[in-house]
Write a protein that binds this DNA or RNA. Structure first.
Lengths: 138, 138
DNA sequence: CTCGTAGATTTGAATTGCTCAAAATAACGA
DNA sequence: TCGTTATTTTGAGCAATTCAAATCTACGAG
């Protein structure tokens, strides 16, 4: 299995829990730990929310998943990694979608005054209204 | 007092707690609720952390303060508002500084593919190393 | 000026999201 | 097949924040 290979390549053991979590994130990106837990639990009844937290933390540390924390919601995880994409978040319902970066190529990557900070990455979050919320408002 | 006038202009009553919180945020921007509480509590011994949360929530709803939630830290508040500035956060110690926006004026405000979202604002967080952490690493 | 009331604060409890740690278990190289 | 060590399990615990009822107070009406 490709998922298991990815785990071993990252130096992690290929356990059922990790495979299930990674696979879950492919079909439902931007899921929080609880969401992942509910999907994984049906196939793996012995698991727990804490285990899912452990797994997600490990996977993120190993670079297999990315953790996103939009203001106001729990941490979200996605498999899409290493491409520095950004996100649009619905300020009404919290729905989230990927956004590829933008204007030229690395916008906002050279702030004018950094107060002496050495900038390594730029994280962009767009806030707006998702199609569903726009529809139900009309 | 200018602070009290600002409160009334926003349609809020000018209470001692609110004035103290606003004033505290002028001298120490990017403070979390606990930080604000400790400063305010010395002048206002009857207050509580919950009251500070209430106040900060109200002030933010009224547009008098801005709430920022960098990944991994508690919510931070600042008085600087309505100028859409951004932040640099130290990935080691969490120190935070303001960054004025950048490249032209409204960079990153026109993502290529929004997945149908109507984008209203763009929030940029730079991650890097602050001067202090850089110094102690050398 | 004082009084009543809507708006704020206080107090205490509860919730959410997550971390920590010890014991049990399972992956996988030898 | 077995042993080691990584991983999961289980259960407790914590920090940040929210909720809600009771009390209080700012401030406009009179």
């Amino acid at each position: 299995m490709s998922t298991e290979r990815a785990l071993r390549n990252a130096g992690l053991r290929a356990t059922a829990g990790r495979v299930a979590v990674l696979d879950a994130l492919v079909s439902m990106p931007h899921s929080d730990a609880d969401h992942v837990f509910r999907v994984v639990a049906s196939a793996l009844p012995t698991t727990s929310i804490q285990s899912v937290h452990n797994i997600l933390t490990d996977l993120t540390a190993a670079g297999l998943t990315r953790r996103v924390e939009p203001a106001g919601s729990a941490a979200l995880y996605e498999r899409r990694v290493n491409d520095n994409h950004h996100h649009v978040v619905c300020s009404q319902c919290g729905a989230i979608a990927d956004v590829d970066c933008v204007v030229g190529h690395t916008p906002c990557l050279s702030p004018s005054e950094t107060g002496g900070f050495t900038v390594q990455t730029a994280e962009v979050t767009f806030w707006g209204i998702c199609p569903d919320c726009a529809a139900s408002a009309a």
